[in-house]
C-alpha cells in the first residue's frame, strides 16, 4: 500500500527523481522501492559469456525498458528474472538475482512460485492452440482454481485489462489462432495478467506488429504500470522513450548505463549510449 501512495504522489506532482545508478547501493534509490535487483550477474551459454557483471535495481510499479543492439544480452537478462533460461541447456549463471529480497537462484526456491509472480509476454505471440477462454484460464487453472464462475470472472477481468474484451467477448470459445497478430499479443498479455503477477516481463512485445497494434500495446503498458512492475525489452528507442520511466542500455552483455528515461535520451552519460541513441550503430 505504501507503494501505491508513492505512485499517487508521482502522478500528482512530478517528483524529483534521481537516477538509479548502476551498481548503486540500494539506499541510493531514493524514490523507488526495488522489486528486483541483480548483483554481478554473469551468464554463460556453454563457454560463451552472454552477460557480464550486470548489477541493476528495478523499481516497483514503473516501466523499465532495456534497449541495445540485437545480441546485446537484454533479452537474456530479461529471461534470468523468471528463470526461463533454466530451459536452455548449457546455461550457467553466477551472481545474485533478488526478488523482494529473496535470491531466486537459491536451490531451495520453488521456481513455480517465482513464475506465478513474474508473468511474461514473448516476442512472438504464442497463444496456446486452444480457445481464448482456455488460454486465459490456463494460468489460474494451473494454480488450482477450479470454480467455473471464478474462472469466468478472471477471464473477463484479464481480457478487459488487456483491452481486448470487446473484440473477443463473443468469440471466447473460438480458437485463439484465428485472431490477428496484435490481438494475439494482447491475448498473451491477458493470459499473463490472469495469474495476477507482480512483475510482467515483456520481450519485444510489439516487434512483430503493425503501428496501430503497437500503439494499442503501448497504451496498455501505460495503463498496466499502475498495478504492475513492468520490464520491457525493445529495440525501438522511440518506444522506450514513450513508455518507460527507467531505461537501461545494454551493449555486448554489459549494462552500460541506466537512468531516468528522460535523462537518458536527452543527456546520455556514456559515449556508447550516445552513439546508440543517435543512431551511429545498432
Amino acid at each position: 500500500m505504501e507503494t501505491m501512495e508513492i505512485q499517487k504522489n508521482q502522478e500528482a506532482g512530478t517528483p524529483e527523481i534521481k537516477t538509479v545508478m548502476r551498481s548503486a547501493p540500494r539506499s541510493a534509490v531514493l524514490h523507488y522501492e526495488t522489486k528486483v535487483s541483480t548483483r554481478d550477474l554473469n551468464l554463460f551459454y556453454g563457454t560463451k559469456q552472454a552477460l557480464k557483471d550486470v548489477s541493476l535495481d528495478i523499481p516497483v510499479k514503473q516501466v523499465t525498458a532495456f534497449i541495445g543492439p540485437s545480441g546485446c544480452g537484454k533479452s537474456t537478462y530479461l529471461r534470468t528474472l523468471n528463470r526461463m533460461n533454466d530451459t536452455i541447456p548449457g546455461c550457467t549463471i553466477t551472481g545474485e538475482v533478488k526478488f523482494d529480497g529473496i535470491d531466486i537462484y537459491d536451490p531451495k526456491l520453488d521456481v513455480v512460485e517465482l513464475r506465478k509472480r513474474v508473468g511474461m509476454v514473448f516476442q512472438k505471440s504464442n497463444p496456446f492452440p486452444k480457445s481464448i477462454w482456455e488460454n486465459v484460464a490456463y494460468g489460474p487453472k494451473i494454480l488450482g482454481e477450479k470454480n467455473k464462475t471464478t474462472l469466468n470472472e478472471i477471464v473477463e477481468k484479464s481480457l478487459r485489462r488487456a483491452a481486448i474484451w470487446e473484440e473477443t467477448k463473443d468469440r471466447l470459445h473460438h480458437s485463439a489462432l484465428g485472431f490477428s497478430g496484435g490481438q494475439q499479443q494482447r491475448l498473451c498479455i491477458a493470459r499473463a495478467l490472469a495469474t495476477n503477477p507482480e512483475v510482467i516481463l515483456m520481450d519485444e512485445p510489439a516487434s512483430a506488429l503493425d503501428p496501430i497494434s503497437t500503439a494499442k500495446i503501448e497504451e496498455l503498458i501505460f495503463e498496466l504500470k499502475k498495478e504492475y512492475t513492468i520490464i520491457i525489452v525493445t529495440h525501438n528507442m522511440q518506444q522506450a522513450a514513450r513508455v518507460s520511466d527507467i531505461t537501461a542500455f545494454f551493449y555486448i552483455g554489459e549494462l552500460i548505463e541506466v537512468g531516468e528515461t528522460r535523462d537518458m535520451f536527452t543527456n546520455p552519460k556514456k559515449k556508447q549510449t550516445e552513439d546508440y541513441i543517435t543512431g551511429r550503430f545498432g
Binding site: 526478488f99 520453488d110 509472480r117 489460474p140 478472471i154
Partner: peptide, 17 residues
C-alpha cells in the same frame, strides 16, 4: 477473483512437495 499481488504471501524459499 484472483488475489491482488499485495494479498498474496510474499515469495519465500522452500520447495513445494
Amino acid at each position: 477473483m484472483p488475489q491482488m499481488p499485495s494479498e498474496r504471501s510474499p515469495l519465500t524459499l522452500g520447495k513445494k512437495i
